[in-house]
Design a protein around this nucleic acid. Sequence first.
DNA 1: ATCTTTGTGATACAACTGTACCACAAAACG
DNA 2: CGTTTTGTGGTACAGTTGTATCACAAAGAT
Lengths: 195, 195
Amino acid sequence: MRVAAREGLHSVSLRGVAAEAGISLRSIQYFFETKARLMQSGLDALETISNERLSARLRALGPSPGARATLETYFAVALPTDHESRQFHLLWTSYAMLALTDPEVSARTFVDGPNRQQKRIASLLEKGKSEGEFRRALNSETEATILISLIHGLGTAVLVGQRTAESAFASFGHYLDRLSQQTSLEPDRDQHSSA
Amino acid sequence: MRVAAREGLHSVSLRGVAAEAGISLRSIQYFFETKARLMQSGLDALETISNERLSARLRALGPSPGARATLETYFAVALPTDHESRQFHLLWTSYAMLALTDPEVSARTFVDGPNRQQKRIASLLEKGKSEGEFRRALNSETEATILISLIHGLGTAVLVGQRTAESAFASFGHYLDRLSQQTSLEPDRDQHSSA
DNA sequence: ATCTTTGTGATACAACTGTACCACAAAACG
DNA sequence: CGTTTTGTGGTACAGTTGTATCACAAAGAT
């Protein structure tokens, strides 16, 4: 994973990871048999690690966090801010593109994973609705689809440097605001009202 | 581009594209000098072609299309439905990941391009607001950020096969609906009202 | 006609790739 | 004890990679 994140997934070689791990080429062969299996193991490890990361951050929220706070944690974890999350986003996307052209890496991962997350977000929205944090008229399924796509899209924008993490977070917060604001009839205030 | 879309960007070789083009290795060398320049030319061509594709689709909308119709066209073009747009999305993302690890391919492309599109969408929203198609209270900049991220995120979900193009289109439409709906106080209808 | 530019073909080369094979050490097990 | 399992190091091999080099052809320019 270190090699892949540093030099790109495409330039991962058996000798390269052997050198990075400080062991011999033969040992890599012994444990992974073939390169295809090494690559697949990398993807599996990536998924496991990211799931653990998310779980840890969710636990850190306390016993019964609000739906909005949980969603923001989801987003904060997905956003490539620190080195580790940047690494994850880069590799995950690289693997996804690889799976589209190389039949040896399982494409199912990129369907099942997001599907699970979407389900979790949808039920989170349901919880938020029942607790009054979100508008009751929301369609949780549709909203979850939009949210997960938004999280991924903003994440990519931050990753490539088009957008700062702060502005991405602001945009996400703005979107969440609209999910919670009750249909109100406040007069639209223009910005030339003060200063 | 054909080779890259078929076998993955990582497995593009000088000999491979020479064979695909039906010319000799030497000719590829003659016109592109080095592989780095060949790759960069590919990215440039990709951007040019996609811009032309978008322009053509926008022209086909007629003389003065509505803001929402224009946005839907933006989305339809970005969505990887046919072979050509799938190819584009795959290669664009692959190039973006490549640019993050390989300093030889310009990373600026992935900042400038989306920035331009975001500006266009923001001004489109402004137009929509002034013509009554969208709520006047919208922050066009923020909304454009969300829209472009949403477009990209949904596009990726469709590309990897997690989501159908139809459902992505429905989600996008649902989002646009909320940009246009005036703050109303309709009673929230539950789904157990009928059937 | 001569020279230059533009382009093509064939091939050589060093570096790197994944894989296979052989010998050997250390531990586990009977 | 011997034997099997588990793991490691070294190395060889065939194939592919990007790049460089040499010869040569066709066209344009003067």
